[in-house]
Write a protein that binds this DNA or RNA. Structure first.
Length: 112
DNA sequence: CTTCTTACA
DNA sequence: TGTAAGGA
């Protein structure tokens, strides 16, 4: 994982901050978590710690809900997005391996 | 004071 | 979804 991704997924925001950032109520945020739409970590005392990624997901949830989608619809949308992201990663990984292989061949001919 | 869970005159 | 209750 890149450092950029790591920071985006750093869970440090308390629910109060997330509430202000998303304009959602604590009730709604916890409800969406119960429905597996967001997965905040738990810190001391069982308190939720959200990452910027979680905030982003919550904003998407709000938009989808306002667009008329149900919780289930959103669960499916996220599942689909996750599959696509996975495929993209696999693809990039394959390209990386391919390039590494090509450069290795060139290297063997002593080109410096 | 903030957050957590549970429950519903 | 809101909100009260009772702890942490």
């Amino acid at each position: 994982m890149s450092e950029r991704e790591l920071r985006r997924n750093l869970a440090i925001l308390p629910i109060g901050t997330v509430r202000e950032l998303t304009l959602l109520t604590d009730r709604q945020i916890r409800y969406y978590e119960k429905n597996n739409l967001v997965h905040p970590e738990r810190g001391k005392g069982g308190q939720r710690r959200f990452s910027l990624y979680d905030v982003d997901q919550l904003l998407k949830i709000k938009d989808y809900l306002e667009a008329g989608d149900s919780i289930k619809d959103i669960q499916e949308i996220f599942a689909k997005q996750q599959r696509k992201a996975q495929e993209k990663h696999n693809s990039q990984d394959a390209l990386r391996r391919s390039l590494q292989s090509e450069f290795a061949k060139i290297g063997r001919f002593g080109v410096k």
